[in-house]
């Protein structure tokens, strides 16, 4: 399959890339290309120009900042996160999800930020971003703005990025306590979209939950933030009754469709089970006995 004809630019600075986007109608940013190129081959997308940002230095870094936030540049590949030796100490939710995104070959090329910009309701990273209260930094001709992920994603495959803006990095805000979390995904085979996925973020003050976030993948027409389930956890020490309440609230927040990946009931059941499994990893020893 061949995409429609397009012109191609590979700028070496963000400023140059943004002026190309400003000057050309229907130009699109190319980062990892692991969603965009298949869509172009299927002619779901036919941009007149691709602005390839792969030759712009400085976008391939990720790490904890002095203010406690964690930044992921626009050219950080899924495999960079998967292979990172330090990511898990700072961002256990992202570290758990990285090896479950797509397949190993796609992960060497595809990027975290690009995946969030693709805004596929079945994407794994959006659930992590929702659970972690993440934001995207967009740079345009008039400078940078920071957009919370729930505002950033405007609908399936749609974001609020302007035509002349580039998503340059993702920011995970500092934790108010010890950060814990994880990601579980049920997939029929490696590389398939999630039948269901759950991202959990906990900020612990001792054995008490100070803040919680739960993002759900593949169980609705958009990424779901299970706010009631997360609220049920706050102030608790993850006793069994609280865990049960959160699991049920998360399942109730879903609106899955029955399809070839499973029935709606099955997907709801998986969500509740995954919430329990993720929370069980962080229950204090005495709570687990009950």
């Amino acid at each position: 399959m061949f995409p429609s004809r397009f012109d191609y630019k590979s700028p070496t600075s963000l400023e140059e890339a943004i002026s190309l986007l400003s000057a050309h109608e229907d130009a699109k940013v190319l980062a990892g290309g692991q969603s965009l190129i298949p869509m172009m081959k299927l002619r779901f997308a036919a941009p007149a120009m691709l602005v390839d940002i792969n030759n712009i230095p400085g976008l391939d870094q990720h790490g904890a900042q002095s203010d406690g936030s964690y930044r992921i540049g626009a050219l950080v590949r899924h495999a960079d996160l998967e292979k990172s030796k330090t990511l898990g100490d700072h961002q256990p939710t992202i570290a758990a999800a990285a090896p479950l995104v797509a397949d190993p070959i796609v992960r060497t090329r595809g990027t975290f930020v690009g995946s969030v910009c693709h805004a596929d309701p079945q994407g794994d990273w959006a659930s992590c971003m929702v659970a972690l209260d993440g934001s995207i930094v967009a740079q345009g001709p008039n400078g940078r703005r920071t957009i919370a992920v729930d505002e950033f994603v405007a609908g399936p495959f749609q974001t609020v990025l302007a035509a002349d803006e580039i998503a340059v990095e993702a920011i995970i805000p500092p934790a108010s306590g010890t950060r814990k979390g994880g990601y579980l995904k049920l997939e029929r085979r490696v590389g398939d979209f999630a039948t269901a996925g759950v991202a959990l973020s906990l900020e612990m003050s001792g054995s008490t939950v100070a803040k919680a976030g739960i993002g759900l993948t593949g169980v609705g027409s958009a990424t779901i933030s299970a706010t009631e389930a997360a609220a049920a956890l706050v102030g608790s020490s993850l006793d069994d009754a609280t865990v049960d309440a959160a699991a049920e609230a998360a399942a109730a927040a879903t609106s899955p469709r029955s399809d070839h990946r499973g029935s709606a009931d099955y997907k709801r059941h998986i969500v509740a089970t995954f919430v329990r499994r993720l929370l069980a990893q962080h229950q204090p020893a005495e709570a687990k006995v009950a």
Binding site: Y8, G33, Q34, I37, L50, D52, D103, V106, T108, R109
Partner: peptide, 24 residues
């Protein structure tokens, strides 16, 4: 982008060559 038959190494890393433009 599903099957991996077209995998080649790009600077030593495996990529699906049906999902990379030659110009890249």
């Amino acid at each position: 982008t599903n099957c991996g038959a077209c995998t080649v190494l790009f600077d030593g890393q495996p990529v699906k060559s049906c999902t990379v433009f030659a110009v890249q």
